[in-house]
Structures are given as structure tokens and as C-alpha cells.
Design a binder for these strands. Sequence first.
DNA 1: GAATATACAGACAGATCTGTCTATTACAAG
DNA 2: CTTGTAATAGACAGATCTGTCTGTATATTC
Lengths: 205, 205
Amino acid sequence: MSSLSSAKESSASTRRPRQGLTKRDQLLETAWELFYRDGYHATGIDRILADAGVAKMTLYKHFRSKEELILAVLEKRSEQFCESFSRFIRAKKRAPERQLLAAFDWLITWVSSKEFRGCFFQKAMAEYQDLHDPIHQAALAHKAAFHGEIRRLVVESGLLNSKALADQLTLLMEGAIVYSHATGSPMPAVQAREAAWALIKNAKR
Amino acid sequence: MSSLSSAKESSASTRRPRQGLTKRDQLLETAWELFYRDGYHATGIDRILADAGVAKMTLYKHFRSKEELILAVLEKRSEQFCESFSRFIRAKKRAPERQLLAAFDWLITWVSSKEFRGCFFQKAMAEYQDLHDPIHQAALAHKAAFHGEIRRLVVESGLLNSKALADQLTLLMEGAIVYSHATGSPMPAVQAREAAWALIKNAKR
DNA sequence: GAATATACAGACAGATCTGTCTATTACAAG
DNA sequence: CTTGTAATAGACAGATCTGTCTGTATATTC
């Protein structure tokens, strides 16, 4: 309680050590890898420190607790994730409806990749199941942002019943992520794309 | 502590403590509640023992390790789950296609229930993500059994492309489970039913 | 050189984890 | 009565967990 010598002005941003790879970023990167691979509870602070090559006090200077570290990792990954998704969708110049289908191509690419181990955010909500838990809420915020992107694409495609359709397409994607991880096969994502296709075609008449 | 009076009324002609509730079953029941609520890693053996009112050595007499306990809980829940699902589906005499739609009614009922906290088996695979982990495999076996039920219903309904359709409907259900838990709302399950309806109608022409 | 900020190594506290072990109680069957 | 079984409480080992603390090293900036 209290303790901690008072000298704590928020002077953290006076200096940028190296080309963007601060100790803080090393921690976030390593923590992500371990949380993603082994889970949140199963990954201890000490393991993160050893892998990142960072001292314990450095971690606790940047983050007040493990929970805060997790929250920071979730936030950073959400940004990276959404940016990577956007880039894929907009890579080629496509009409909105083509972009919507491209979202499922992106999904297939993702679940087919060697590094795929399910959804980082689904796992967070699985381990922190209470809706009021800050970690659950952070993960949910990511899902909401992603769902918003899908919705935007549906609206821009001028399809009927855009809200309902966007919801349904999102469900297909979530289901495909779960099932692809569960079985270790990308096939569920392919099935999801086919279902999406049918639903989109349906929303045209 | 506080060994609440466990008087053994009932003549006990057999050596079963009470109506079929052996120590082993008490452990499985309590373990399920805690694993489901708090997660697998976050739930310690000691907590299970305290809640179940069972001594440690009794647990290790019935199960060699925590992992074996988890596996036993998964198996038992899978049976209960499938049986409850079957009963719901076949409650009223329905044509196969009606049963298929009833599966989504069941889903809505489930995610709307106060006890719903996501899928026990999805969570197991989230925490034990390695495909070769016995726990992951046990959870996957449950998913395969469930998927088999859906597939059977689709086939019996005489719909086109039964394999693909069954896969797609399963994805909708998995997605709805994830999203309903994430948001704490049953709406995703309702959306899933609507999407299922569209896909089924599509498989008739 | 002095001051400041960042990071380091490593000990430490206190809790909790899984799993083992002993010694004791209760009860039913031979 | 004797024997065997199932369960009990509780100590214990050894590991690991989060978070705190001390003291030191490095590098920049004034």
C-alpha cells in the first residue's frame, strides 16, 4: 500500500530508446506470443520476463499488474488485427460486395496459416467469462469493432436487411474460427464462405 | 470445516450413500460447476474439494490427476448434454426438418438461460489449444458427436448437399454460442436461426 | 562532473498449486 | 471379533504464482 517513493512524475515519454522497439514493446510482443500459445492463466509473469529478457521491475514500471499487461496486449493486438484485416480487404480495388467476399478469403488465409491457434480474443473471454471483467470487456470491444467493419461492408454493398445479414455473416466467421481451431483444418472457413455466399445472394432479391 | 450434518437416513440396503450420488459423482458435479464458471486453470483442486466436501485422498483415489478429473468431467457433461439435446429435439413428434429447426430453438433456450456461460467444450479447447492434448481431443470428440447429430437431421430431412449444409448450420451454432456468451444476449442465437432458415430453404431447390 | 531516467539482477514475502503421506474413524461382511 | 474398504483431516514437499524491495549499472543531458 502506498510506499513507492513519491518521485513519479509522468515523464515516461521524454525518450524513445531505439527504432520503436522499447522494452515495453518487447514485453507486449512476448506476452502476446505466450498468452496466445499457452493461455492467460497458464502463462506466468516469470516466463514472460525470461523470454523477453526483461527484468521484473521493468515490467512493473510499465504495467501495474498482470491484468494491466493483458489489457495492453489485447489493445495492441486489436489494432494490429484490424489494420491487417483492412489492408487485405482493400488490397485490390474492389466493389464493396467483392470486399465482403474478400473478408472470407482473408478468414481462409488466416486459419490456414501455420501460426493460427484460434482467436486471441475468444480465448480471453473464455478464460475471463464474467461480462464485467475488464479483460472480457476489452476482448468484446474488439469483437464489436470487427463486427462494425463487417456491417459497414454490408451496408456499402447495398444489400437488403443489412443489420441482420451482417450479424449472420459475423456468426459464420466466429463459428469458423472456433471450428477451424478445434479440428486443425481450414475447411470450416471454406464452408463459411459458401454459406456467406448463399446468404448474400439471398439478400439481393 | 463445518461438516454439515450428513446423517445417513434411508435404510441403505445397498452401499450407495444416497440416491446414486457417490463421492465420485459429487466431485464430478462440483468440478463441473467450478470449471465452467472459473475455468480449468483458474480452478484449484483445493477449491473443488472444499466445495464438494470431500477429502483430498478421496479425489486421488478416484482420479490419478487433475487432468484425469477434467477428462472425466468432459465425458460426463458430453453425455448429459447430448441427452438433453436429443430429448428436446424429439419432445414433440416432428418431421425431420422440423427437428432441425427445433435444434435452433433449443439453442435459443440454452443461451437465454440464466446459467449459460458459453460452451464448456469450447472453453476446454481454448485453454488446452494443442490438438494433441487429451483434453482438447476429448472436447473435440464432443463437438464431433454433436455435429454428427446435426448431420443426421439434415440427411433425414432429405435436403440437398447434406454434408455442406450440416457443416454450415453447425458453424452458425458455434458462432452463436460464442457471440451470445460474449455479449450476454440471446440475440445472436435468434439471428443464427434466421440464417439457418434461409440456408435450409435454399437447399430445397 | 552531476543529475536524471531507465534498466538490471536477484532476494524475498506470502499465497497457492498439484500431489503424497500418515494416522484415524466408521461401517459392513465374513 | 476380525478383516477390509472407503472416507476423513491434516501435515507436508516442492514448485510456481504475483508483486515488492534493495542496490547497482548504464547512458544521456545539463
